[in-house]
């Protein structure tokens, strides 16, 4: 069973439908207790960093336990940004801090939010990117992006005026700034890789 953390931010149908489509056995989980026994956990995210963290805080302990136990986890969009320590979007709000670094605004002079399909530049081949090639396009909607202190966690970037962190990987954690559930067949491929990782 894959738990989709429902902390009240945004529409979970898309990610639910996408996981269901590929046989991932998703379940929308509204309480921290529901994470126990999950084979994998998806942290979606829509909205501002601060309000996401407000809502997510009650899951923090359960998520950390699962992360430390090695449960495969997938963060999407703001669900990736909350892994960092803090964000320029919501000064003073603390993120989960599992990835050292901060979340910054896209530079002036580019279209903000970045909304549309952009191509990946793969920095490090990982299992979650199996079947994905340099230049494959994914759907992005965001105004901020994560900047990890340890650059080696970055597995893919995209170009939007600056080199934007598009995907990171650390131990059993994988996260994307783009939306795999809105990125057509290539996005479903990443979700299939995630489902396969649950059983390896």
């Amino acid at each position: 069973m894959i738990a989709i953390v429902n902390y009240g931010m945004g529409n979970l149908f898309s990610i639910y439908n996408a996981l269901d489509r590929i046989g991932g056995d998703p379940r929308i989980v509204p309480d921290p207790e529901g994470l126990a026994g999950a084979d994998g956990i998806v942290v979606p995210g829509v909205g501002a960093f601060g309000s996401c963290m407000d809502q997510l805080s009650r899951f923090e302990g359960s998520l950390l336990r699962a992360f430390q136990e090695g449960v495969p986890m997938l963060g999407i969009c703001v669900g990736m940004q909350v892994l960092f320590e803090e964000s320029e979007e919501s000064p003073g709000a603390k993120g989960l801090g599992w990835i050292k670094g901060n979340v910054v605004r896209l530079p002036d002079g580019v279209m903000i939010p970045q909304m549309g399909w952009n191509s990946l530049s793969i920095k490090r081949p990982v299992e979650m990117l199996e079947g994905i090639s340099n230049g494959d396009m994914f759907y992005f909607v965001h105004s901020y992006y994560g900047r990890p202190v340890d650059r080696s966690v970055i597995v893919a970037t995209t170009d939007h005026g600056v080199e934007v962190t598009a995907a990171i990987a650390k131990d059993n954690l994988f996260a994307t700034q783009f939306h795999p559930e809105k990125s057509g067949a290539k996005g479903l491929k990443i979700l299939e890789n995630f489902v396969r990782c649950l059983h390896c």
Binding site: F13, S14, N17, D20, R21, K182, S183
Partner: peptide, 11 residues
């Protein structure tokens, strides 16, 4: 929309 979003994975 519900029916479409079961099998269409673009915005």
């Amino acid at each position: 929309i519900k029916k479409t979003s079961e099998s269409v994975f673009v915005p």
